[in-house]
Amino acid sequence: MLHAISLGLVLFGLWLLLSGFFTALLLSLGIASVVAVVWIAHRMDVIDHEGHPIHLTFRAILYWQWLLKEIVLANIAIARVIMARKMPIHPTVIGVTATQKTELGHVIYGNSITLTPGTVTIEIDKDNLTVHALTTDAAMDLKTGEMDRRVTNVEAHPDTDNPNPNANTGEHS
């Protein structure tokens, strides 16, 4: 229920931002479409702590700041590699292990890896991520496991923050 309300608020905020009109007719149309969307999402059974992870919000904001810094640094490194006359690339395929407990954590980790230029997640199999790295530096950075540790911190206590976790598939620890 909490997730449904938060989804509705986010959608209605989006409606207000995109329309920019505040007449009664348009506001009531907005409320009607928000209710319809929440009802459809409820029927599809996608309103849960995975689809709408409000329990992560504050830690995620802290994580994004760190991720932004990493993305800028990696961008500069990869841009220098591309603009060098003889591109010093060493494409490697490495496997890293994710220590997150939930699938949501794996998704955050995989997407963070892909979002950082120089590393692309090409396959996820439970805890093992196959990562394609453009340079050895990018691969070494990933191997230090700092991003993994920080993502694990983001989803540190998914069960205590979430009153009724669904019977998740990969959650037996």
Partner: peptide, 10 residues
């Protein structure tokens, strides 16, 4: 894909 990643982020 790494080149496209630069376009998409920075």
């Amino acid at each position: 894909m790494h080149g496209a990643g630069i376009i998409d982020t920075m």
